[in-house]
């Protein structure tokens, strides 16, 4: 395989500049145009790439594939998120081929929240592959074969071979971080070329984590989730594994007047990015629908 970058995200990370990515989620329903329009207005030209979530938190909605394709058509580079919760190895490989055909190159592999966390808790959890084996499957496709074999045990050959820039996730602030680090090592061994982390609100904990993964030579983008209210922060502390919002941050959200919340939240995100930007290679901004705040965060972080 050549070392030529296959996407702008890869090229930007290769260049050594601090990279910012953002994230959108397709709606529950067919009304996806406003999501794409917002991305065009607030994200295009501001970030290197935009992730599209894949049935996030197991709440049924439009696919990450359609979101990624529409972003691509609008001239915004997508990162296709792929979870292993809903599709078996046939469907996942088929979708990877589809993604490449559509021009999508960046793919983020995730295990995916369990179905019982979402709005169809009766659904079958698939997990035929996991995030590690999905990365491995992508490498096989890039090498021109798939996960199957013919009657003689010879790997199936592809008619047209895809290329990807392959990503994965890690939870830096997990209370037991060592098993997470080993899993990250496995993901990189399986082919991961970049990492976008779970939300981080504790720069000191992140610094310790980054020391632990010094030996892992792939770029890491620190995950920043925008807080909309103090209640949301408390909810995350209670209900989102590996995410700890310190009291001081919750207090700032509590103390501000409602009309100022957005401004304060942008400041918090900006400060987090600016504090951690020398520890890692980029930031992944998850604004949960507040795309219009991305330019403000970039400015507040001193990156603009």
């Amino acid at each position: 395989m050549s070392n030529e970058p296959v996407s702008n995200l890869q090229r930007d990370l290769d260049s050594g500049e601090f990279v910012v990515t953002a994230e959108i989620g397709p709606p529950k329903g067919t009304n996806i145009a406003p999501v794409i329009h917002e991305a065009e207005e607030f994200l295009k030209g501001k970030v290197s790439a935009v992730n599209v979530t894949d049935i996030q938190t197991a709440v049924m909605r439009g696919s990450s594939m359609v979101g990624a394709k529409l972003l691509f058509d609008a001239g915004i580079e997508p990162v296709l998120q792929m979870v292993t919760r809903d599709r078996n190895r046939l469907a996942l490989q088929s979708d990877l081929l589809a993604a490449h055909i559509f021009g999508i190159r960046n793919v983020l592999c995730l295990t995916g929240d369990h179905v019982t966390m979402g709005d169809h808790p009766q659904a079958m959890p698939v997990y035929d592959l996991d995030s590690v084996s999905l990365l491995d499957a992508m490498c096989k496709l890039e090498a021109g074969t798939d996960l199957g074999a013919d009657m003689k045990g010879k790997a199936n050959e592809l008619d047209g071979v895809p290329t990807f820039f392959k990503g994965c996730c890690v939870t830096p602030c997990a209370d037991e971080v060592d098993p997470q680090v080993i899993k990250l090592e496995k993901k990189v061994e399986a082919g991961a070329q970049f990492v976008q982390t779970q939300a981080v609100y504790e720069p000191k904990v992140f610094e310790t984590f980054m020391k632990k993964v010094e030996h892992i030579k792939v770029p890491i983008l620190v995950g920043i989730v925008m807080l909309k209210t103090a209640g949301m922060a408390k909810y995350m502390n209670r209900g989102v594994p590996g995410v700890v919002v310190p009291d001081a941050i919750i207090q700032r959200m509590t103390d501000c007047e409602k009309p100022d919340r957005e401004k304060v939240s942008i400041e918090i995100c900006g400060e987090l990015v600016s504090t951690m930007k020398d520890m890692c290679q980029g930031a992944h901004l998850m604004t949960l629908g507040w795309d219009h705040c991305v330019p403000g965060i970039i400015q507040a972080a001193g990156l603009a």
Partner: peptide, 20 residues
């Protein structure tokens, strides 16, 4: 493992417990 994973913990592990 509630996801029957074979390559290690997922991100849903918290204080020794499962997200489910």
């Amino acid at each position: 493992c509630s996801k029957s994973l074979v390559n290690g913990t997922c991100g849903g592990t918290d204080k020794g417990k499962c997200e489910v």
